[in-house]
Design a protein around this nucleic acid. Structure first.
Length: 438
RNA sequence: GCGGUUGUGGCGAAGCUGGUUAACGCACCGGAUUGUGGAUCCGGCAUUCGUGGGUUCGAGCCCCAUCAAUCGCCCCA
């Protein structure tokens, strides 16, 4: 048996419904904030990710799916969405579009070669958004509000917005040097993970889980304390707007993100829910003012975020979200060979009229067909056998009430449509057609 | 890359210190009820215990290897 590749999984028909519902909410909230969808390729030149995400990051160093195609091009399955969006913005000159800032979002699979665990697969899905073209702190706040609106729309509880600022490129570099200087003599007292972090990305030492409360880290200089005056003003501007928008947040002085391109505002969205396992962070993002320039574009600032869709879905498992029961309008029970053709004709007519109709394809006994109808949650059960064919009628049974009537073929469609409409007021919002109307 | 746990039918699972017909439940299929479902009863449904090798008179149970799943670390969404 050929099985799926490690870290991938099938989204089966029993689960696609909740994916579609999630995507639906994403589309709606994005519309509210007037973000437009962008769809970029799933693989790009390897260099794009090396230069954007950062050579030293784990994502690029050991988690990309790299290969060379038959034309010997070095390509990489995208590990995140921002790089592709930026590439596209530069290549298609969206920075020159009169519509600014460019407000874009994307939904799709990403690939990282990691050890799979709860809330982490090798092929996973992200919803992300980027607002490009403005330096204004209002855009930072807009992005966070957008993210929060989405989580509210999904009714995900216990969400915390953690926010911090790394400052502009100069503040960032100055701070880094300061931190290294501070940590250098003390690093041997920290855990082994910290010691290797110190070598690779010293900022990450700050949010070590083990030494979190160690006096060394508590007393360590924080990025926030070495912001330039302008960076300070920017950060305060973001906070003021968040407050005005009614978005609660927590300043986390140790919040540092793993991608190299962030400047100024960085934020994470955490949900404290048991179903998420060890992955409390369901989304994160920040400002990246220099990335477009670094990828050979113009001086063009941007802010973005990304959510792990699997993680959102896991979070959703913590609340009982009554998913609407699946149903069909009618199930057609066919008895006897002679009825087949006529049944097919009837079924097509109903479908052309917009009814959801299914039938038996195995010539099963009557009882089994009834069971099948019930399993499909059919509102009406239509019975067609030789008797009915002869009289040009169909026996129509209301699955709920059990009432059965003999209806002339010509009147069948009308009969069912009327029945569905009258039913929709007594179902307590149970059926989907009713829920849709409300 | 590192560590823990697990691997028996479509699913959930029993399986005693290894002893020879691999329980049980759900689902599914057929029948009782030649054309009227959801209840009941009867019957069917694993030549085999992830895979390979070893120990043994004998292995689902022990040993080794391997693969897979899963959870955690690192990192990230």
């Amino acid at each position: 048996m050929i099985t799926k590749i490690k870290g991938t999984y099938d989204i089966l028909p029993s689960e696609t419904r909740k994916w579609q519902e999630l995507e639906e909410v994403i589309f709606q909230v994005s519309r509210l904030y007037n973000f437009k969808e962008i769809r970029t390729p799933i693989f790009e030149a390897s260099e794009l990710f090396h230069r954007s995400v950062g050579e030293t990051t784990d994502i690029v160093k050991k988690e990309t799916y790299d290969f060379s195609d038959r034309g010997n091009r070095l390509v990489t399955l995208r590990p995140e969405g921002t790089a592709s969006v930026v590439r596209s913005v530069i290549e298609n000159k969206l920075f020159a579009d009169p519509n600014q800032p460019q407000k874009l979002y994307y939904v799709g699979p990403m690939f990282r070669y990691e050890r799979p665990q709860k809330g982490r697969q090798r092929q996973f899905h992200q919803f992300g958004a980027e607002a490009l073209g403005s330096y204004s702190p209002a855009v930072d706040a807009e992005m966070i509000a957008y993210a929060i609106t989405l989580l509210k729309a999904l009714r995900i509880p216990k969400v915390t917005v953690k926010i911090n600022s790394l400052g502009d490129q100069e503040s960032k570099e100055a701070y880094r040097a300061e931190l290294v200087k501070y940590l250098e003599p003390k690093i041997s007292e920290l855990c082994s993970d910290c010691q290797s972090r110190f070598q690779v990305n010293p900022l990450r030492v700050l949010d070590c889980k083990i030494d979190k409360d160690s006096p060394i880290l508590v007393a360590a200089p924080k990025p926030l304390d070495s912001l330039s005056p302008l960076a300070k003003i920017h950060f305060q501007g973001v906070l003021d707007r968040l407050q005005a928008m009614g978005v609660d947040y927590v300043i986390d002085k140790s919040l540092v993100r793993g991608l190299d391109y962030y400047t100024h505002t960085v934020f994470e969205l955490e949900a404290d829910l048991p179903t998420l396992g060890a992955q409390a962070t369901i989304g994160g993002g920040g400002r990246y003012n220099d990335l477009v320039k670094n990828l050979d574009g113009p001086d063009y600032p941007a802010v973005g975020f990304a959510f792990g869709m699997e993680r959102i879905l896991l979070a959703l498992d913590s609340i009982d979200n009554p998913s609407k029961p699946d149903y069909i309008h009618a199930f057609l029970i066919v008895l006897g060979q002679r009825s087949q053709a006529k049944a097919a004709e009837v079924m097509m007519r109903l479908r052309h009229g917009g009814l959801i109709v299914d039938t038996d394809f195995f010539g099963r006994p009557l009882k089994a067909q009834f069971k099948q109808a019930q399993r499909q949650n059919a509102m009406y059960i239509l019975i067609m056998g030789d008797d009915e064919i002869e009289k040009d009628v169909v026996n129509v049974k209301n699955a709920k009430t059990g009432v059965q009537e003999t209806i002339k073929s010509a009147d069948l469609y009308q009969y069912i449509v009327q029945g569905i409409q009258s039913q929709s007021h007594s179902c307590n919002g149970q059926c989907e057609s009713c829920a849709d109307e409300c």
